[in-house]
Each structure stands twice: as structure tokens, then as C-alpha cells.
Amino acid sequence: MANSTQILKGLLEGCILKIVSTHETYGYEICEQLTVYGFQEVSEGSVYPILIRLEKKKLLYSNMIKSPFGPMRKYYYLTKEGNTELEDFISSWDKIKKNIDNVLEG
């Protein structure tokens, strides 16, 4: 049986797209938001490669912005393609969740 880490990796992309869709944000803030939502086991070492992958897929774009607290930060924004991917993720998740709930509720 697949462990929860493998399952989580597949779902984090959609969760990150959702977080970025709400406002411009940077990597560390995304990590903090994931922790607030209950993903305590997700590290920065997991999030940053996902951000790079999403940017390469043109689902996100980034901009370096001066931070009032130190070095410049890389802020992420959702592209039109990213918004479409997010909508697809939500639709797929709804279907999968419904099916799993049906099985678990027997």
C-alpha cells in the first residue's frame, strides 16, 4: 500500500495552486499556510521543488520583490493556465473524495 507521503506529494501541487490563487505569496509563507491547514509534516524542502515544477509548467510565474525584512523575495502568482489547472484539480478531488467516501461508508 502506498504510504501517506506519496499520496501527499500528488495533492500538494493542487493545494499550493489554491494558496497562490488567493494572493501573491512567497515560498516560506506558503509553507506556513500549509502548516496552518494541518500539513505539519510538509517541509520547505518539499515545497520549493514543487514551486519550481509549477513554474516550469507555466502554472505559476514569479517576480523578485524587495522585502522590508531582508533580502529580496520570490513572489508567486497564478497564470491563466494555473487557474485552469486549479479548477481541474478541484473537480478531480471532488470526484475522488466522493468515491472514497462511498467506499468507506460502505
Rank of each mutant, 00 (worst) to 15 (best):
I90W: 00
I100P: 00
L59A: 04
G106L: 08
Y61N: 11
C31Q: 05
E41M: 06
M64W: 13
K18D: 03
D88I: 14
D101G: 00
Y28D: 00
G14F: 11
G70K: 04
V20N: 06
S46R: 10
L78K: 07
K97P: 00
K18R: 10
T84A: 15
Q33V: 12
S92E: 09
G38N: 07
T84P: 01
C31P: 00
R53F: 05
E13F: 07
R53H: 04
D88Q: 11
L34H: 07
L11C: 10
S91R: 09
Y76R: 06
W93S: 14
L12P: 01
N3E: 12
L51Y: 02
M72N: 15
F89G: 03
Y61E: 15
L104Y: 00
Y28F: 12
T35R: 12
E29Q: 15
L34A: 09
Y75M: 11
A2H: 14
K74W: 02
K80T: 15
I100M: 01
L17D: 05
L12R: 06
Y28M: 04
E32D: 13
T84K: 13
E13K: 14
E87S: 15
H23S: 14
S62D: 07
V47Q: 02
V20F: 05
I100C: 02
T25R: 02
K57R: 08
I30S: 01
S43N: 03
G38F: 01
E87T: 15
N63M: 13
R73Q: 09
E44Y: 12
Y75S: 06
K66R: 06
V103G: 00
C15F: 11
I100G: 02
N99L: 10
S92W: 05
E44C: 08
G45T: 13
F69Y: 09
Y61D: 13
V20E: 01
I52T: 13
G27V: 01
G27T: 04
K80I: 04
M64R: 15
K74I: 08
D94N: 13
K66P: 00
P68R: 13
S4R: 08
N99C: 04
I90R: 05
F89P: 02
E13G: 09
M72I: 00
C15A: 10
A2Y: 13
I30W: 07
S91A: 11
I96F: 03
S4Q: 06
E24S: 15
P49E: 02
K80N: 15
